[in-house]
Design a protein around this nucleic acid. Structure first.
Lengths: 246, 246
DNA sequence: AAGTGGTCTAGACCACTGA
DNA sequence: CAGTGGTCTAGACCACTTC
């Protein structure tokens, strides 16, 4: 057992995880299907359990599979939904329906709070002004996809309180004649906090696709600041950029 | 040693990695500084080496630290650079200089190839048309940040071959009067292939911020298809969306 | 040579799932 | 109940960095 006369370069666990990765890519293990159990892999590759576990850990970190205690290791679905930033005014549901998936929005929180510092700045508010804070939870095909956090001016929040709790923000404003004429936004990768990790059912510290924006009214006043944290394996953003003036 | 009368809920390795994470966040271990070695952590927490290693693995997967064999474990820099999608026509260097960092572009590849199928579709080409394929490598502060892959129509590629190899694509076209009037793009998270993993110096399968676009000329002809794969810990995109017509 | 992280082994107990 | 993955131990050898 000790004899290892050929010092191959790639470590064992990587050889194993690469082999499995290939088999997954080639469809030998399709989405949703179960990988061989640890004990089977130990026999198959003649290695210790720790080595097998590290191989599987590689695949988990690469987002390819998920392990469930007592059940097994399963290949993840890869299907992604695209959300258009350029036409945020279509109903979310319509957008999703067009892509052939069912979606739902779940209200987690809707309350009046004093604005945190960064929101204060973004919305150009006085010290300690109150705003409405809303947290919404987006599900697609019953799988959690994103958490949306919105801070909205109190006047608007009061006015549309009930609607805000079951729909996306922009369509509501639009329907009531409050037009958003400009949005400044950033897109980046952030890491899942413990709270988000639980909500979105991803490992702690997993990469999230994060969209942050400030929306301005037609009088160029900022009225909404928001942040959408999405599972990177489930959501993509699309955008159309048109040249207006150099 | 065996006595563990209090069955605390979170596993040991998580307790340790969370403790270290807090200390990093609180500045006890600043960016670039070295964490205690494995043997020190073994003593400090009175656990086995495997447990310490798993704790550190957690931090590595969360993108907080990087381990170097023979040297130690070091806290990552967090500094991010923002690239504006709405004004892609400013020189990359200018954009970066404004943010107080030095940047450079390195040409990896520039050659004539027959267009892959997806590029063929995006550029509305006939079967087996040839295009120029360019791969560029972006460094900021001497750290690798992104790989840019561009497919450009042969006529344009020939014309500007020399310039394309040392500059970003859009400014060159713009300077020569070829105006890009519209770009359709998507932003999503993809995973590092072995090639990208080596180039960008990230673990295999690490999350990358991926920007994919098709650029159209003023006659609405697609002229360039491209893809930028960036390190999520180093780059963010910004965009301004203006309402034009509902 | 000493110290670091990387790989690997054999073996143990636990928590959860499903029949 | 058997089978699964999750946690943990003690100990070994290797590759790399630094002195």
């Amino acid at each position: 057992m000790k004899s290892r006369p050929l010092p191959e370069q790639p470590p064992l666990h990587q050889v194993i995880s690469e082999k499995l990765r290939q088999q997954i890519r080639d469809g030998q293990y399709g989405p949703g299907s179960q990988l061989p159990s640890e004990s089977q892999l130990i026999e198959q590759f003649r290695v210790s359990r720790i080595t097998v576990r590290q191989a599987i850990a590689n695949l988990i970190n690469q987002g390819l599979v998920t392990a469930y205690r007592g059940k097994g290791v399963f290949v993840n679905q890869q299907r992604k939904v695209t959300y258009s930033l350029s036409h945020p005014l279509v109903f979310f549901d319509q957008d999703m329906a067009r892509q052939g998936v069912s979606s739902s929005i779940q209200n987690l929180l809707f309350e009046r709070v004093s604005a945190p510092e960064d929101v204060q700045q973004a919305l150009q508010l006085e010290e300690a002004t109150e705003v409405y804070l809303q947290k919404k939870f987006l599900l697609i095909d019953r799988v959690p996809v994103a958490l949306d956090i919105t801070y909205i001016l109190t006047s608007l929040g009061e006015q549309f309180a009930s609607e805000l709790q079951s729909h996306l923000t922009f369509p509501i404003l639009e329907q009531h004649g409050i037009s958003v004429c400009r949005i400044t936004a950033t897109v980046e990768i952030t890491r899942a906090s413990p709270e988000l990790s639980e909500l979105l059912e991803v490992p702690l510290g997993d990469s999230l696709l994060t969209y942050r924006y400030t929306a301005y009214s037609d009088r160029d006043q900022p009225i909404v600041w928001g942040e959408t944290l999405s599972r990177g394996d489930r959501l993509a953003y699309s955008v159309v950029l048109s040249k207006q003036s150099s």
